[in-house]
Every structure is written in structure tokens, then in C-alpha cells.
């Protein structure tokens, strides 16, 4: 078992023939990911990386049965790409693109609400189920197969955590990079819930950052769920100065519990094993798994 993506996922790449799309699709295929084609409007009918190119996502769904997409479309067109994927019936929409205008994401998030699909990201490293599918931009070799799930807002910090877990002789079921934008499709709580409910995952690593309520929501859900599956948590940004990126009004909506200290306190109160040092994530996982 694993969550979101596995060896049976039929994956397409939106923005397939662009430089980012080409580079990462190549890496994904080399990893052994089941890439069944790609979409670049106007280039339908061509072959790229030995895979068919389609004009629309709908064609890719109809002709090769695509159920998962990874989006590398430039920011100005990315929200449109998300909505096209949802409209075509894609189930898992992983959006790597960084820098999508917030106004566009408000529309895209509203559009996909109530549809049978799940958005991961945007501005995220993607999702990897080691040995089965790498649907993202992460270095595949860092992630060895195992029984620890990872949920993180950050790319390189996910790699760091996976590396530490692997060096403890353990491995990863699925690592989910949820992204760091103000509006993201899958929240920390939803990603944690997926992994807690995954029978193969025996421990979850939850990595957050300052700002927002996502980690607190996940922690409260975990406590209420009564799950005995351990979670190891880390929040980056204890030393980050307050108010550098947020306006006054935003700070009010966020409340006073979005600092690293406040989040860690909530997480600890909900039974999460919180580490203060980012160098201790792997060790702590080993310790709680015994």
C-alpha cells in the first residue's frame, strides 16, 4: 500500500514539451514512473520522450486512461491547467509551478471543490512512493522504500528528513510535498490523515513552517482521531523574525498561534513527538518506532 501515487498510476505531464517538463519527465521515466504521455496544446499527435503528446487533458484521459497529472505549466497559465485536469476527470493533480497569482488559485480551488479529485500543491516538490512512482522534482535516490510517511511544506527539508530516516536504516512509504503557497489543494491535516489511514505506514513525519494554521489543524485532528500511530514533528522558522512577510490584517486572521513556538506547543499537547533540532528528525523516528 501507499497513498496518492503507485506503480499503477497512469501519469501525464502538463507542460510536457517545455524545458522544465522535459527535464523532470525524463527523470521520472528513468526512475520507472508510469508516465503515459503529456499535454502541450498545439503539439497533439507528436511524440516526446517516446510518449504521446495530446492537445487536451481530456484526450489523454480518453486515449491512454490518464488518472494522475503533474503540472509544470508557467504561472500565468497554471490555474487554467489545474481546472482543465479536474474537468477532464483526473483524480490526482500535482502542481509543481511556483508563483501562481493568488487570485487565480482562489478560482482554481473553488472550481475543484466538490469534484472527485485531489490537488497537491502548487509550489511543491510533488509526491514519491519509493520504488513505484516519483511524481515530482525530488532526487529519487534519497527515498528508500520503507514504513515512514512524510508530509512537508518544503522541498529540500523533505529530502533532508528522508535522508535522515533512511540513514537510520528505515525507509519511506510515501512522501507528500504539500507546498508553501497561501492556497494549497491538500492541507497538512488531509495528508497526515491519508498516511495515518495507510496500513503500511507505521510512523508519520510532519514538517511545517511558521505561518498559518495547517499544523495546528493537523495536530488537533490527530488527537481527536485517537490514532496510536506515532507522528514526529518539526516546525522550521523559530528564528525567523515576525511580521516580515505578513501585513497587519493577516496577522490578526492568523492569530497568535502561528509562530514556531506556539505550533510546537499545540503539537506536543496533541501527542506529537516534536523535535527542536532539524538534525534530530531521523533519530526521533527510530526512537518512537523502537
Amino acid at each position: 500500500m501507499s497513498v496518492l501515487v503507485n506503480k499503477n498510476s497512469k501519469i501525464i505531464v502538463q507542460g510536457f514539451t517545455g524545458s522544465e517538463g522535459t527535464f523532470h519527465a525524463t527523470q521520472m521515466i528513468e526512475y520507472g514512473t508510469n508516465v503515459v504521455g503529456g499535454v502541450t496544446p498545439g503539439k497533439g499527435g507528436q511524440k516526446h520522450l517516446d510518449k504521446p503528446v495530446f492537445n487536451t487533458v481530456k484526450e489523454a484521459v480518453d486515449e491512454v486512461g490518464a488518472d494522475t497529472t503533474i503540472i509544470f505549466v508557467p504561472p500565468a497559465f497554471a490555474a487554467d491547467a489545474i481546472m482543465e485536469a479536474a474537468d477532464a476527470g483526473i483524480k490526482v493533480i500535482i502542481t509543481i509551478t511556483e508563483g501562481i497569482p493568488v487570485a487565480d488559485m482562489i478560482k482554481a480551488a473553488d472550481y475543484i471543490k466538490g469534484r472527485d479529485c485531489r490537488l497537491i500543491g502548487p509550489n511543491c516538490p510533488g509526491v514519491i512512493t519509493p520504488g513505484e512512482a516519483k511524481v515530482g522534482i525530488m532526487p529519487g535516490f534519497v527515498f528508500k522504500k520503507g514504513r515512514v510517511g512524510i508530509v512537508s511544506k518544503s522541498g529540500t527539508l523533505t529530502y533532508e528528513a528522508a535522508d535522515q530516516v533512511v540513514k537510520q536504516g528505515l525507509g519511506i512509504t510515501t512522501a507528500i510535498g504539500i507546498g508553501g503557497d497561501p492556497i494549497i489543494g491538500t492541507t497538512t491535516k488531509e495528508a497526515v490523515e491519508l498516511l495515518i489511514n495507510d496500513p503500511e505506514t507505521e510512523c508519520v513525519v510532519m514538517i511545517g513552517e511558521i505561518g498559518g494554521q495547517l499544523e495546528a489543524d493537523a495536530a488537533n485532528w490527530y488527537k481527536a482521531s485517537g490514532s496510536k500511530k506515532p507522528i514526529v514533528g518539526f516546525i522550521a522558522g523559530e528564528t525567523a523574525p515576525a511580521g516580515r512577510t505578513m501585513g497587519h490584517a493577516g496577522a490578526i486572521v492568523g492569530g497568535s498561534d502561528d509562530t514556531a513556538q506556539a505550533k510546537k506547543k499545540i503539537m506536543r499537547a496533541c501527542g506529537i513527538h516534536v523535535v527542536d533540532s532539524p538534525a534530530e528528525i531521523g533519530k526521533k523516528v527510530k526512537e518512537v518506532l523502537g
Partner: peptide, 30 residues
Amino acid sequence: VDLDGNVGCMVNGAGLAMATMDLIKQAGGE
């Protein structure tokens, strides 16, 4: 982002950069 401490850092990725800043603090620097 300019800060007031004594240890400069250069990192790839925002999350790892913040984690590195935290580690600098835990090592006795700012």
C-alpha cells in the same frame, strides 16, 4: 532577508534555510 545575527548562511530551499537558521541558534550563534 537581512537579520541581526553573526552567522551568515547560504541554503537551497526556503524550508531548509529556516531550519538552518534554527540550527545556528541552537549551536550558540544568531
